[in-house]
Each structure stands twice: as C-alpha cells, then as structure tokens.
Simulated assay, not measured.
Amino acid sequence: MSLTGAFAALADTGCAVGESPLWDATRQALLWVDIPVGEIHELTPATGARRLWRLEGPVGSIGLAADGRLVVARRHEVGLFERATGVYETLAQVLPPDPELRLNDGKVGPDGAFWVGSMHDAPRREPRGALFRVTPEGLVERRRDGLFTSNGLAWSADGRTMFHSDSRGCWIERWGFDPATGAMSGQTRIATPGEAEGRPDGGAVDALGYYWSAGVSAGCLNRYAPDGKLDQRIPVPVPAPTMPCFGGDGRLYVTSLRPAGGAAGPVLAATAAVTGAACALFAAGAL
C-alpha cells in the first residue's frame, strides 16, 4: 500500500474550496488556498504555527518562487506575493476581464515557469478554458484550448512527463515535457474517470512516477500508473477531495471543499509510504 496510516483532518483547516496545497521545504510548511474568499494559508506541522493572508477576489492557485515569494493566480492575472510584508505585485494579465472566466489550478513547472489553467466559471459549463505558461518575465503563452475546467497539473520527478486533466471533460492526459524549454509533445489521454470513479481534480506525482488524482465526485484518491492503469483507489473521509500534495515530512496532504449543505472541507493528512516529486521553483527576479 502507498499509505501506511489513516487520514485525519488537521484542526481548524475547513475551507469553502480548499485547493493548491504545496510544501515549502525551506520553511517546512504546508501552504494552500481557499479559492472563493481569496485566502492563502500556511501551517508548520511540527509546531502548529499558522499564518493567513487574504487577497481581494478569488485565488485559484499558488506556487513557490526561488526568492521566497509566492506566485499567485488571481481571477484574471498572475502576480507575486511577499509573505513577510503582504506586498503583492502584478506580473501578467492572463485573461480578459470576463466575469465568466477565472484562473484555476496552477503549478510551477520544471522549466521555472508558472503553468496555470482557466475555467468557465458559470452554471452552464462551456469549453472556454485554456492552459497557459507564464514566464518570470511576464510573457504569457497559450498552450491548450477548448477546456471546461483546467486542472490536475503535475510533473514527474525527472521533469520529462507532464500530467493535465479537465474536471468537467473527465479526462487525464500525459505529455512529454522538455524541462529546459517547456515544450510539450506526445499527447496521450490515459484515463477518462466519470462521476462514480471520481472526476479528476488536482493531482500530484510520486517518486515512482505514479499520478495521484483527487476524485472530487467520489470521495477518493485515484493512483494511476504512468500508462493510465488504475493502481489504487483510496477512500478519504470527506466527500469532495480536491488535491493531494506530498509533504517533506513523510505525509500526504489532501485539500477538500464544502459540498452543498455540508461542512467546510478540511485539510487531511496521512503517513505515506512513497515520497513525492520535488516542488519546482518559479525563477522570479525583481519586479
């Protein structure tokens, strides 16, 4: 088994839509966001120390920059946030000012750029989303179109395989990836999980190259082999998990959301028998 202990909810971590967990190895801290309220949370598991920052409007995802700042996907833009001072600076406008579009899942890639997808944020979902690559210089490259809800970004430990999903299209794709240039090649759709199996939300890759997908509609984590074969379906004690993250403390963390009429979604933690791929850093310079 890939987990050696049961999941437990961390105290006082309930969110409306908890997402984008990542491990800050320098500070030995876990970070995550609560999308609709624009909150960024930080927890140091060893001490229980907590910090919270709130930005105006939704925060879809975050990444770590090499200089210690956070790269932040807001509704239509990407910027850099300094935790010590609370100063935020816009880096790039990614989307037009359309109230039905917002940025969603994002991660720093092995190429040092921030990869972030968008979604059609309306009751009727249309394939208006896209996948973008944002460079440290603020250059925005559109890499994929026709998405409902871009999600599930994760890379293998060697940086040569990228995974990407669409939560409403209900598919997971694998791409060849050049960690030096960010070039994508060899698109392969490896899985098409539906509602009962767990629509694919956020993802993570372990050190063995297996892709972990949060089955947001089925209360589970789905662990796929690189070729798309389902290796394990792991139940979690919440109805709607949103993204797994391997911590540097030997634990697997999972964010979750509040289902309709339910309680706030906590962050879960369990002891893992496998480690995760190292967190890449955004090569940010001074703005």
Rank of each mutant, 00 (worst) to 15 (best):
A73R: 04
V33A: 08
R83L: 15
A73Q: 04
G79K: 11
R124G: 15
T135M: 12
R50P: 12
P99G: 08
F114R: 02
E126G: 12
R50S: 13
P36L: 00
G63M: 06
R74I: 04
R74M: 08
L55K: 12
A130F: 15
G57I: 00
D111S: 13
R27M: 11
A29R: 04
F132L: 13
P127T: 09
G63Y: 10
R51D: 15
A29F: 00
L91T: 02
M119K: 03
H76F: 06
G79W: 14
A46Q: 06
G48P: 14
L43T: 07
D24S: 06
P45S: 09
G79S: 13
L64T: 07
H41Y: 07
D98I: 11
L131W: 05
V71W: 03
E56D: 14
L52D: 09
I40N: 07
G112L: 01
E100S: 06
E39S: 08
E42T: 09
A73G: 12
H120Q: 13
T85R: 12
R54T: 15
A65W: 03
W115V: 02
G38P: 12
D34C: 11
P45F: 02
E42K: 00
H120E: 13
A130H: 14
W23N: 01
T26Y: 05
G106W: 00
A84H: 13
D111E: 04
